[in-house]
Design a protein around this nucleic acid. Structure first.
Length: 899
RNA sequence: GCCCGGGUGGCGGAAUGGCAGACGCUGAGGACUUAAAAUCCUCCGGGGAUUUUUCCUCAUGUGGGUUCGACUCCCACCCCGGGCACCA
């Protein structure tokens, strides 16, 4: 009898899995095996079991399961492990069920932390990154995750990032990549651009915490995600059911579709100050509530709206207005407290004409109007908008009411009412739909109808049109950093911007950059990198020194796994066509918006390039909960990290895996508890011991049992005599029936938990119950033969296999199997064995539990009724009263309604 | 403010309209042991009655509703977590 020694067992089986190449994908394209290594595989693979698992690879259904690739920083903690354990269980279950499974892993290896670490330690980002990759890889192997390591990718390698450049060039050709001026964070002390993460404490430089970050406008590269706004929104419908609702909601929110109308207001020529001819100026506003336009009491422009300067020029209050404008512009730098900032603004001194009724409305500038959204100008309708109401209240603008909750006969109010002055000023804005009032010909219409009619009329008369706008912005991909993909363009004095020809890819990062964290971007200061010849004319030219946002790397990496060593194209479309879409993607909720949105965008671009046929790369998404300690997520800065290596050393990988699966359902946050890990450890020991004992008994009693654990006829007869059983020697005893029933009931529920809801915690609970039952049925002499016990122990082993794979292999071997567990299929449920012979039925009187009766399974209502009536507890509550109604659910319950 | 989650014993959690608290942790008691560890067994929501046994009653954030029956479905509210937010 031995002890459970996870360190030995885990090393042993990891070695065997590698030798037998168990986790390597069997086919890449339908009907075709991977060209490499096919012959070796055939000779090394053990024969397949029967059923789906035994089919030739090209006949198996494919299954692509993927966990979000990690950024290799520091060491792996149990938060990482939880993510990969969930994915590994799924991968292993699918393999057992006969799927051709793709389960790869790689490294999101570019990024700022590597560069920062390099600056600090005077080393190269590659050194730091590769060291971390080495550690991460070792830890993943230590946990026995079933990755096909032949497909490992690292995004910082030229073999990978050259395809980022290739995609960029294709997008450039199609006008999807473009350059424009944009605001960046600038630290005046470092004299460099800061990433958003480097801006700390609400606007200060991370290295100079006394220095406020400034906004600077510089030329930057963008990808036109907005070209796909409508599709990105529309295709979310395809994801319903496969993605968590909240992620879909977050994406929808982020894209922010808003339907409304744009309306042109002419600036009045006879403004407050005559003499300045601005009458040709027009202000375009966007509104979702064109039906409220009769209630507009001002036009409000964003402080940085291009028209503002021209409007205030020459007015009486020009000097004061300019001063105020400068104030508004600087105070709008902070992004965090914009939402809570008080409304502020000023009157420009000019008026605009409402195209619907010819009324003059004052033109204001307001701090709450955003240039980036809509047209950067709004019409203020204080009676029907919260913000406008607040603004009008502060500055004394009229608040005319033009929408009424009820349809009133008197649709034209008094002049006083209309102006919204004095007693009739509403106390609150009414922002819902209702009926138009005080709105000329439109009065009396329902808001929905008024919106439709007024927008059409505006369009017909040429001063407006229906319009849909989006909140989604184009994706700024320029980074003034070293450790990223160089953007492949060249600026020639003669030819202007010239794309790097495909044949010159990859544009390699210079090997030995000067990294200081200060001054110009690192690539810009490297003369060898920057000074090049123009690919067109051969004249002197300068290379682009920006690198790409690392979100570019992670937007398409999962396609590369299909064909990781292709040096002709990013991937073979046939291979991607076979594997995609990803059947199951698993990762943290933190990436619910950007990573997934960019990935969806990239897929649509690739579709338009003809590389793929699908529009959505990910069919199903699962967002697992965080692993917390002390109520907060594990992080190095908080010092509450439980390292994965530490865990493996102390308890072994299987205990770590089991614990993270058992402690909480996978979508919920998990609070780390050292005591509960002991529970998982104890359980695995318990399983090991019972199998060990079983094996020992079979070996030590050869005279009674044969090698398969079957009892000799002589002993069987003796035993049945002892027990006084009437059944034949070979028939199962009552105890055996009970054990087999429990086993198959557990199998049924575990199968469901794996296939459907992923309630791994209750699956484990089922297995624990079964193991408890095995213990309760001990010792063997009292009615459970080794053959039966073996059958049950095999089921336990197979059910544990996806979760604690090393231990399961070991147990399988201890149970006398020569071939590895990886050759075995998921067991079939035996419904006949799972069936109960006898059930206990609760009996309710008026819905309250009053008694229980034992009946044979499938007993009829009458049979149950007879027994129930005889039950003392039930009878007491019936009290001779008439039974008005009987509700009977076979094998479930009986409810008697008395009155 | 809007949009998603969630609220069940001392703790993690089970139960998707049918016996609330499976399974595990902690705790208490017992067996084994010179002893400890490990292991095995028993008990463990509150109140009450009865005292070996059992029975009654309350209880799944709060208040209503639907139903023979509700942790589960519907309405309103409270609290916690997350996302978005002067988005016109």
């Amino acid at each position: 009898m031995g002890d459970y020694k996870p360190q030995e067992i885990e090393a042993k089986w990891q070695k065997r899995w590698a030798e037998h190449r168990v986790f390597e994908t069997e086919a890449d394209v339908e009907g075709r095996q991977p060209s490499d290594k096919t012959e070796e595989k055939k000779t090394q693979d053990p024969p397949f079991a029967k059923g789906a698992k035994g089919r030739p690879p090209e006949k198996k259904p494919k299954y692509y399961v993927l966990e979000m690739l990690p950024y290799p920083s520091g060491t792996m903690h149990m938060g990482h492990m939880r993510n990969y354990t969930i994915g590994d269980v799924v991968a292993r279950v699918k393999r057992m069920r006969g799927f051709n499974v793709l389960h790869p892993m790689g490294w999101d290896a570019f990024g700022l932390p590597a560069e920062n670490a390099a600056i600090k330690n005077h080393t190269h980002p590659r050194v730091w990154t590769n060291k971390n990759i080495g550690e991460f890889q070792r830890t993943l192997r230590r946990f026995g995750f079933s990755y096909d390591w032949r497909r490992e990718i690292s995004t910082c390698e030229p073999e990978y990032y050259r395809w980022n450049q290739w995609f960029f060039l294709r997008m450039l050709e199609r006008g999807i990549a473009y350059k424009k001026k944009s605001r960046v964070n600038w630290c005046p002390k470092c004299c460099t651009v800061l990433a958003n993460e480097q801006v700390v404490n609400g606007g200060f430089c991370w290295r100079h915490e006394d220095t406020r970050v400034e906004a600077r406008e510089i030329e930057q590269w963008f990808l036109k995600t907005t070209a796909y706004s409508e599709q990105l929104l529309e295709d979310l419908k395809q994801l319903e059911g496969g993605w968590p609702d909240r992620v879909i909601a977050m994406q929808r929110n982020w894209i922010g579709k808003s339907t409304g109308a744009k309306v042109l207001f002419e600036v009045a020529a006879d403004g407050a100050q005559p003499g300045i001819a601005v009458s040709q100026e027009k202000i375009e506003i966007f509104t979702t509530r064109i039906d409220t336009i009769y209630g507009a009491s001002a036009i409000i422009l964003a402080p940085n709206h291009p028209l503002v300067a021209r409007l205030i020029a020459g007015t009486a209050g020009q000097a004061a207005a300019e001063k105020k404008l400068a104030e508004l512009k600087t105070s709008s730098v902070k992004t965090e407290d914009i939402a809570t900032a008080e409304k502020d603004g000023f009157f420009t001194g000019r008026y605009a004409v409402n195209p619907f009724n010819g009324e003059k409305v004052p033109i204001w500038v307001g701090n709450f109007v955003l240039l980036e959204y809509g047209t950067g100008a709004i019409m203020a309708v204080p009676a029907h908008d919260e913000r406008d109401f607040e603004f009008a209240s502060k500055f004394g603008l009229p608040i005319p009411v033009v929408v009424s909750k009820e349809k009133s006969l008197n649709t034209e109010g008094t002049e006083k009412e209309h102006r919204g002055h004095g007693d009739n000023k509403p106390a609150q804005p009414f922002t819902e739909y209702g009926y138009s009032v005080n709105s000329g010909a439109y009065s009396g219409l329902k808001s929905e109808d008024a919106i439709e009619k007024m927008a059409s009329d505006a369009e017909a008369k040429g001063f407006g049109k229906k319009e849909t706008i989006f909140r989604l912005r184009d994706w700024g991909i320029s980074r003034q950093r070293y450790w990223g993909t160089p953007i492949p363009v060249i600026y020639c004095e003669k030819d202007g911007m010239v794309p790097v020809p495909d044949k010159d890819l990859p544009v390699l990062l210079p090997a030995n950059p000067k990294l200081t964290g200060e001054g110009e971007s690192p690539l810009a200061t490297d003369p060898e990198f920057v000074n090049v010849k123009c690919p067109k004319c051969g004249g002197p030219a300068r290379r682009e020194s920006d690198t790409m946002d690392t979100f570019v790397d992670s937007s398409w990496y999962f396609y590369r796994y299909c064909d990781p060593h292709n040096d002709k194209q990013p991937f073979d479309p046939a291979k991607a066509g076979y594997w995609f879409p990803i059947d199951q993607y698993i990762g943290g909720i933190t990436h619910a918006i950007l990573h997934l949105l960019y990935s969806r965008f990239w897929c649509k671009v690739m579709r338009d390039l003809g590389l793929v046929r699908h529009s959505e790369p990910i069919a199903r998404l699962f967002t697992q909960g965080m692993v917390q300690k002390g109520g907060v997520a594990m992080s190095k800065s908080r010092g509450n990290v439980v390292g994965a290596e530490e865990m493996a050393q102390k308890y072994g990988a299987d205990t770590g895996r089991l614990y993270t699966l058992f402690a909480a359902p996978p979508e919920k946050d998990l609070e780390w508890s050292e005591e509960s890990i002991d529970g998982a450890w104890r359980f695995l020991n318990r399983v090991y011991r019972v199998v060990d004992k079983h094996a020992g008994e079979v070996a030590s009693r050869k005279e009674r049992f044969n090698a398969e654990g079957t009892e000799s006829a002589e002993f069987a007869e003796k035993r049945t005599q002892d027990q006084g059983a009437k059944s034949a020697p070979g028939a199962p005893t009552e105890k055996e029936r009970e054990l087999l029933r429990k086993a198959h009931q557990a199998l049924k529920r575990v199968t469901q938990d794996f296939e459907g809801r992923w309630h791994f915690n209750s699956a484990i609970a089922q297995i624990m119950e079964l193991v408890n039952a095995i213990y309760a049925a001990e010792p063997l002499e009292e009615g459970v033969r080794p053959a039966v016990q073996k059958e049950v122990l095999e089921l336990v082993t197979l059910m544990l296999a996806p979760m604690t794979p090393h231990l399961a292999e070991e147990l399988w071997e201890m149970l006398g199997h020569k071939d590895g567990l990886w050759t075995v299929e998921w067991p079939a449920i035996n419904e006949e064995l799972a069936k109960e012979d006898e059930v206990e039925i609760p009996v309710q009187v008026n819905g309250k539990l009053r008694g229980r009766v034992k009946v044979a399974a499938g007993a009829t209502q009458d049979e149950v009724m007879q027994l129930a009536a005889a039950d003392a507890g039930v009878a007491g509550h019936l009290n001779g009263k008439a039974i008005r109604k009987v509700i009977f659910v076979a094998d479930k319950m009986l409810n008697l309604v008395v009155g």
